[in-house]
Design a protein around this nucleic acid. Structure first.
Lengths: 167, 167
DNA sequence: CAAAGCATGTCAACATGACTGACCAAAAAG
DNA sequence: CTTTTTGGTCAGTCATGTTGACATGCTTTG
């Protein structure tokens, strides 16, 4: 019969290839996040808690405002999950020195342990997928994803993400 | 032989690369879905409606059960959004002939128009990102994503997705 | 300095879209 | 013909997003 290997894109990408890419993104994200969700459920947490733990771990001392810029949710939504994480001892807040309104966020050791567990699991998933696809595929994977990220956030991937000045 | 770093990869992807990949997936998915969300908001719909419209468009005559297998949500969750879409005239249900309990789902012309609008917008996003990254990157993008998809669903991308036998 | 305005974060009320449990109807199994 | 399985629905709850009103503290200005 005719072809059945649909996974090679000859040219500027036809309708079918684009549809498959849309679906791949949906299925991949669904399954990728399901891994961590299972762990989070043990703690009574959801995906929102995961995102907070991850980015606080990544940027120790981050302010609530900066976290909001990353997550693109409202202060109120963040406030709820953040409050739970603080109550449960996964995150500590300390007031900013330069600006006492701020609550600079940090993981506790307990929080850092959970973060390592979650990130480790997800890193394993990606590492396995990358290994299967070959090291060469990884560059393509990353550059297409980067093209999907809105301009304002691309800088996160082109320079060092660490920059915790003042406090 | 027998060393541990012999497994062919030039660099097995370090911690930092893996973290960046995790974040890329988060940011790319966030921005990718935001495009369609804006359109959906005009109709008073959410992301759940989008997924239903998309997969019903993709598999005309699909049953509720098969749709549930794709979406991995509960019948009850699907029922609500599906009910709205039927009420608003975006989807029609017709009873199965072989099994009268089934409600085979199809888009109306109105539903198909919305589906084209949503998919077109998302296809443009991906096409642009792929064009920027180069046609070569696209293969890598797709094969890594495919590696993240759980086994049971990979078959959707290796053979023709159409197969509406019975009715 | 005091008042105005802006920035940071909180509280209250609400909407969406997941979930579980109880249920009905039709088909399949005995 | 009963019982079990399958396909789908109704009611209620939970998680997590939203907007609006607000307290506090920094900054700017008369």
């Amino acid at each position: 019969m005719t072809d059945q290997k649909v996974l090679t894109a000859p040219h500027p990408l036809g309708q079918e290839e684009l549809r498959q890419s849309i679906e791949l993104l949906f299925f991949a994200y669904r399954d990728f996040t399901a891994e961590a969700d299972a762990i989070l459920a043990e703690y009574g947490f959801g995906r929102a808690h995961h995102r907070v733990i991850y980015f606080v771990g990544r940027h120790a001392g981050i302010t609530v405002s900066d976290l909001l810029d990353i997550l693109r949710i409202t202060k109120q939504s963040l406030g709820r999950v953040l409050g739970q994480l603080v109550l449960d001892g996964f995150i500590v807040q300390r007031p900013g020195l330069r600006d006492r309104r701020q609550r600079l966020l940090e993981l506790t050791e307990k929080g850092a342990a959970l973060e390592r567990r979650l990130t480790g699991r997800q890193a394993d998933s990606i590492a396995r997928a990358c290994a299967e696809a070959g090291p060469h595929a990884v560059d393509g994977f990353r550059s297409v994803l980067l093209g999907l990220v809105h301009d304002g956030d691309r800088v996160r991937f082109t320079r060092r993400p660490e920059r915790n000045g003042g406090e």
